[in-house]
Design a protein around this nucleic acid. Structure first.
Lengths: 328, 328
DNA sequence: TTCCGTAATGTAAACGTGTACACTATGCAA
DNA sequence: TTGCATAGTGTACACGTTTACATTACGGAA
């Protein structure tokens, strides 16, 4: 693999200095003579020259990559958000590096180090875990953006997401208004702030009147299936289940299907997120719609703000809505 | 945002030269005195130093990022492959930059330029489009890897994927062996090599005996729905549909559901890919299983080979199998 | 004693870029 | 004529690494 041409090669071929070539590629064309522009352009084309983003990053002490850490690459909502972010970043000339923490604190810390090594323009944390390393980075630099899961107390950084309490509350109210009995919450891990806020909102929405059966559950189909199987072992009641997540809801649904249960006659299921494939593959699922594709633009704008404007704890709260379908 | 500490800061604090610090971070610890190691380590920790990947890349004339171009970020199989690749690359110390070409040749070329600018270690092309820029890059450097869609004739580069002809053939044979009537192929765009090979294999498998109705279709749920609606307008026959893609199959399924058709009594559907969520959300879909999670390791190995070993047109053919479920 | 090998460390030169600053040529006003 | 603004271009340094080569200290052999 021949090593790529540099700015010097282009300068030599077109008979100008590297400064002029650099000016051409940084768009400062107003200060260059038209015939010079043309000769640089053609020399660059002939050599197949592309400016080295590495040299540029080094010189400017900042790269054009944004790193996004996701807790679970197999979550469909996460994938929707990632697609949205990638697209929005491309619009402002940035690249996205996607990495999976698998809900593992050590992996997260390793990836944070990688992001620092890459001099990432920004680090987007979907579902961050509170570690010393994270706190340290939040203090040292201000390029962290939290998504979906708010920063732990004491960490000051922008947040993009929905109002989890309000969303949970809305579901709880809906349950009451429709007189649902035997309410069940299959909620996410209790130590995740977003997850517990969602649950608190739901309980508040349901109110004191009814008691709510609770199951703690990882945000995966497999875990949902497991908890669902546990719950549905008792077929004497018609449960109304609020799942913290669409993935969990899919798992519960599978458990129900295996028992040949009819929905909603024998079981009512609510999910959360309403990812893109729901409309196609789970057209039965009633769920809280979170606007996955609004995340990208919001995050891109946050990144694009000059550090001056950025007050370091801006919060972008996106709207949610209830999508009522057959399972309700 | 305070600018990050450099190797010089660490050298100064620990009272050694930058060379020694560099040796520490590149793992050449056998040539450093134990007490020196400790002082460098603690100085680095105190400063929160992480080596600049940019400086390193510049010096070594090669970065640690791999760029992967996908034609459709919303394709679930693509997402599975991406997750697999990301994971495998992490294992060998590389980062993945994911970008979406949206089947747009200009976007692809722009992203190829970006990849060149980033001095990407490798460029993984899922479903590449044949453009002059692509040919030029394939000639100039040898870090292109083609996935799923073979390089166009004249381009010499490694390929990872399945044998599309054989897979199509296997489905065709299955149709014949089970006496399926009214065979339909909703195939992918004809100018994509992988897609047309799949169709050719299928037709060969079905043989001359039966004629096959053909629809050309983009690899999306929406397009599948559209073609499916067209086909199912005629309810006088029980069709047997081979979809080029699971996404297409989902669309056809939706069209069938809207007409309250029973599957497989009134319609038989075959898909292609068998992505991860099928087991959960489309447990009815008979499909060709492609081992998405084997792509990552295969690609990582290809990248890790020394250029010497790499004969530039290695081909890794992964196995496929038929997953027979309710829709058959 | 001198000589030499070895372990541990330092010096300095790249790698590819952007830009402050310096420089030249030209046109125009005084 | 001189002075000065301006357009166009070049020179040279800095950004943070890695590593070939140089240097030093020390112990043992001759």
């Amino acid at each position: 693999m021949a090593k790529p041409p540099t700015i010097r090669d282009v300068a030599r071929l077109s008979g100008v200095s590297t400064a002029t070539v650099s000016r051409f590629f940084t768009g400062k064309t107003s200060a260059i003579a038209p015939e010079t522009i043309e000769s640089v352009r053609s020399a660059a084309e002939e050599l197949g020259y592309t400016p080295s983003e590495i040299g540029r990053s080094l010189r400017l002490a900042s790269s054009r990559v944004v790193m996004m850490l996701v807790p679970d690459a197999t979550n469909l909502f996460t994938a929707d958000v990632a697609a949205s972010v990638e697209n929005a970043l491309k619009g402002i000339g940035l690249s996205l590096v996607l990495a999976n923490t698998a809900e593992n604190a050590e992996k997260q810390d390793g990836l944070l180090a990688d992001a620092q090594g890459l001099r990432a323009r920004a680090i987007v944390l979907q579902g961050a875990m509170d570690t010393p390393r994270l706190r340290e980075m939040a203090e040292r630099q201000n390029n962290l953006i939290f998504v979906n899961r708010r920063p732990a107390p004491g960490i000051v950084a922008p947040y993009v997401g929905i109002d989890n309490f309000a969303a949970g509350f809305a579901v709880g109210r809906y349950f009451i208004e429709h007189g649902y009995e035997n309410c069940v919450a299959i909620h996410g891990p209790r130590h995740y702030p977003g997850s517990s806020r969602r649950l608190e909102g739901f309980l508040a929405g349901v109110g004191e009147m009814r008691q709510v059966l609770r199951f703690e559950c990882a945000f995966t189909m497999e875990a949902g299936y497991q908890q669902g199987s546990l719950l549905l072992a008792d077929r004497s009641r018609r449960y109304t289940v609020f799942c913290a997540n669409d993935m969990i809801a899919y798992g519960v649904y599978r458990a129900a299907m295996e028992r040949n249960m009819r929905i909603p006659e024998e079981l009512i299921i609510f999910g959360f997120d309403d990812n893109r494939v729901n409309g196609w593959l789970a057209p039965w699922l009633t769920t809280v719609k979170v606007p996955a594709f609004d995340f990208g633009p919001a995050i891109a704008e946050l990144i694009n703000e000059t550090p001056a404007t950025n007050d370091h704890n801006r919060t972008v709260i996106l709207p949610f809505s209830l999508t009522i379908r057959q399972s309700a």
